[in-house]
C-alpha cells in the first residue's frame, strides 16, 4: 500500500526533516509511526497525501508515484485516504453531520446520500444524539470521533492519523484507538503517528521508530501480552 524508497525531505533553507527513509507498509496493516517531537512523523505523513513533496527518493501510495501526480491525481489520491489530525480540523460553523457529509459531497456523492451515510457513521461512533451539535459544543473525544467519521465517509483504503490522541485524556485516547482498530479489522490500512509510548504498550501493532528524521528501529506486530 505504501512504499518509500530512500526518501529525504529538506525544508528550506537546509533543515533535513527526513533522511533516507526506506519503508514498506502492506495493505491491511496497522502501523504506529513513533518518535519524539521533531522526529519527522508528521512530515512523513504529509508526503503520503502529497501535502509535501520529497526532496529525494520516491513515494508510492496504492501503486501511484505521488511526485508524478497532476492536481487531479492528487485529488483522486486523497479521496482514497482518510485523514485524522490532533486538532481535529472541524469546521466550527457546521454541525457534526455537515462536517462529515461535506467530505462526501465534494467528491461527488449526492447530498441526501452523503448526509445519510454521515449520520450512519456518527451513530456507529456513538454520536447519534450529537449529530446536530457544532464542534465548539462537543467534547474533545466527541470532536475526534466526528473527525474519524469524516475520515471514513469515503470508504478510504488508507487512514493516516497524526497524533489523534494528543488532545484527549487517556480513557478517550484508548477509545479512539479502539476505533482505529475496528477500521483495521475491516481491512483498512491504518498509519498512526504518535509520541505516546503508553499507546504502543497497550496496542500491539507494528511500530516504526523515527529519530532525527531517520528510521531508528521499531517492532513487528505482536499479539497482546507479548
Amino acid at each position: 500500500m505504501v512504499h518509500l524508497f530512500t526518501v529525504s525531505k529538506i525544508y528550506p533553507p537546509s533543515y533535513p526533516a527526513l533522511t533516507d527513509i526506506q519503508l514498506d507498509i502492506e495493505k491491511g496493516e496497522f502501523v504506529f509511526l513513533s518518535g519524539p517531537s521533531g522526529a519527522g512523523k508528521t512530515t512523513l505523513l504529509k508526503l503520503l497525501f502529497r501535502e509535501e513533496e520529497a526532496t529525494d527518493g520516491q513515494v508510492v501510495v496504492n501503486g501511484r508515484n505521488v511526485a508524478r501526480l497532476s492536481n487531479k491525481g492528487v485529488a483522486r489520491l486523497r479521496q482514497e485516504i482518510g485523514l485524522v489530525f490532533q486538532d481535529f480540523r472541524l469546521l466550527a460553523r457546521l454541525t457534526a453531520l455537515d462536517n462529515v457529509a461535506l467530505a462526501a459531497e465534494v467528491v461527488g456523492m449526492a447530498r441526501r446520500e452523503s448526509r445519510r451515510k454521515a449520520f450512519h457513521l456518527l451513530r456507529e461512533l456513538g454520536l447519534k444524539d450529537r449529530h446536530n451539535a457544532k464542534p465548539p459544543a462537543l467534547s474533545g473525544g466527541e470532536q475526534q470521533r466526528v473527525a474519524i467519521a469524516r475520515a471514513l465517509v469515503n470508504d478510504p483504503l488508507l487512514v493516516l492519523a497524526d497524533e489523534p490522541t494528543g488532545n484527549l485524556d487517556p480513557e478517550m485516547a484508548d477509545e479512539t484507538m479502539r476505533l482505529f482498530a475496528q477500521m483495521h479489522q475491516r481491512g483498512t490500512t491504518v498509519v498512526v503517528a504518535t509520541h505516546n509510548t503508553g499507546l504502543l504498550e497497550r496496542f500491539h501493532h507494528r511500530v516504526v521508530l523515527l529519530q532525527q528524521g531517520r528510521v531508528a528501529g521499531g517492532r513487528k506486530e505482536c499479539p497482546a501480552g507479548v
Binding site: 485529488a75 486523497r78 485523514l83 469546521l91 461535506l102 467530505a103 467528491v107 469515503n154
Partner: peptide, 16 residues
Amino acid sequence: KDEIEIMQLVGARRLL
C-alpha cells in the same frame, strides 16, 4: 480558508 483546506485534504478537485 479552513473550509478550503479541508476540501483540499479530503480530495476535492481544484475546479470544485
